[in-house]
Structures are given as structure tokens and as C-alpha cells.
Amino acid sequence: MDPYKVIKAEVLDVKDETPEIKTFVLKPEIDFEFKAGQFIQFTVFGVGEAPFTPSSSQFEKEKLEVTIMRTGRVTEVIHRLKKGDRVGIRGPLGNGYPLEEFEGKNILIVGGGVGLAPLRALLLSLLHQRDKYGRILLLYGAKTPEDIVYKNEFSKWKEKGVEVLRTCDNPDNSWKEKKGVVTCLFEDIKIRVDNFISVVCGPPIMMKFTTLKLLDIGFHPSKIYLSMEKNMSCGIGKCGHCALGKYFVCKDGPVFKYSEIKDIEGIWD
């Protein structure tokens, strides 16, 4: 098996999330299974590849969704893809969220911006077997209401028993929910951290302050799961690009317990 070989996939649909973010629905040519939190390398033939965590449920076997922000050379080209285009994927890569360890526990999910993508995969996977878990809380922050991803899905999640709180840094007058960065949502939740685990994904600065907040309210470092973003290239622990201290994020992560990485210098850089 050649780990550098891509699996061909067809773009079934392209959904606009925000002006800079789109969700691509892919149909891989062969059966493709992954665990929420694992990532793939998304290949645009002849252009390059870039790492993304699928945003669809791990129990969805027919197709795969990937939510992508336009932010660099490869994503610029990805954003021009249309229904029917052919792309490639490599994976699944990395470790994913340990769903079995989450069973019977309350789960606090904290997301920022496009960082909600891997958390949506987690959330949908949890909802697939909702009764296995306790309370599920989702705290989500975006810059403006326009920057919120999956705009139409929050109400569905609420119906399925997710407690949702949202905030925007710079809302317009129509915004009726919280104003401020994501950590201010902690004012509005009442939890006893004993039987909780937390899962965080977002921009580095958001991950940093959320982690500090979680520690502050009593979360043990081993109960905080972080999806780390690094420059993954080979995706299989060989090329060295995604080094985070002694770890290769692509192979040892991208999901880490905070306790595993807390002593590494510059983890939020």
C-alpha cells in the first residue's frame, strides 16, 4: 500500500458557508472510513494538497464533507472547484477523538470560526448515538454573524439535545445573542466539571484562552482535547513539517490532550 497514493473523489456539491468558507461534499471512488478528528490531505491535481479535517459524521459512509476557508495557495484553487470536478484525497490520517472514552460523560465543545469543522464531525457522530453520552454543550464564537458556519444547522442540533450558546466579536444590530470572544460564554453556563470532558478547536489565540479558561474553572489538563493545526505535509510522520516538540502532529495528533503538550514551548504560536 502506497501511503502517497491519492483516492480519487468527485465533488458532489459545493455549499457556501461564509464569503471565505465553503463546504465541499465529496464522493470517494472507493469506500472511505474515518474517525471524527482525523484529517485528510485534499489534493487538487497538478496544484498541490492541503490538510483538512472532514466535517461530516464518521457514520456517514456514502459521502464526505470538508469545510475549507480560503486562506492560501491551494485553498484559493479549491474554492474555484465546481460540482462534478475530480479531486483526490489521502487518508484518513492521524488519531481522531476517542469516542469510546467520551461514553457516559458530559461533553463541552468549544469552537471558534472555521474551527467548528472538526467539531461538527464530532457533534454529528455523537448525535448518531446520542443516548451514549450525557449533556452536550456547544459554545461557538465567530467574528460577525456573517462569519458563522453551518448557519442552518444549530437549530437542528438544539432539537437533538445539544445546548448551544453563540457569540460574535463584532455583531451588527440584528444580533440578539452574546457579544464578545468565545470565553465570555462561560459566564452563561453552569457545569460541574467532574464528569465533563472538553473539546476545543479554533484559531491558536482562541484555543489558548479557552484552554486557560477551562483550567480556571477546574478542568484537569487530561480532560481537555485540542485539535492542533500545524503544517502537515506527508501526513504519515516522515517529512517533519508538523513537529510540535517531540511529536509529529500528523501522526501523534492532530487531537492531543492538553496534558500531553502543555510543557512544550510555544504550542500556541
Binding site: T71, R73, E229, N231, D269
Partner: peptide, 21 residues
């Protein structure tokens, strides 16, 4: 694949611009 070097400035940079080194 090309050999690369951790001593290059752009080596660990991600698309969003963050660069730990």
C-alpha cells in the same frame, strides 16, 4: 518529494500565516 530544511523560514508556516519558528 524534495528534501526540505527546518532551517528555512517558511518551513513550519501554515496557510493562515502562523509560524512557530
Amino acid at each position: 518529494r524534495y528534501i526540505d530544511s527546518c532551517q528555512f523560514k517558511g518551513y513550519a508556516r501554515v496557510a493562515g500565516g502562523a509560524n512557530p519558528r
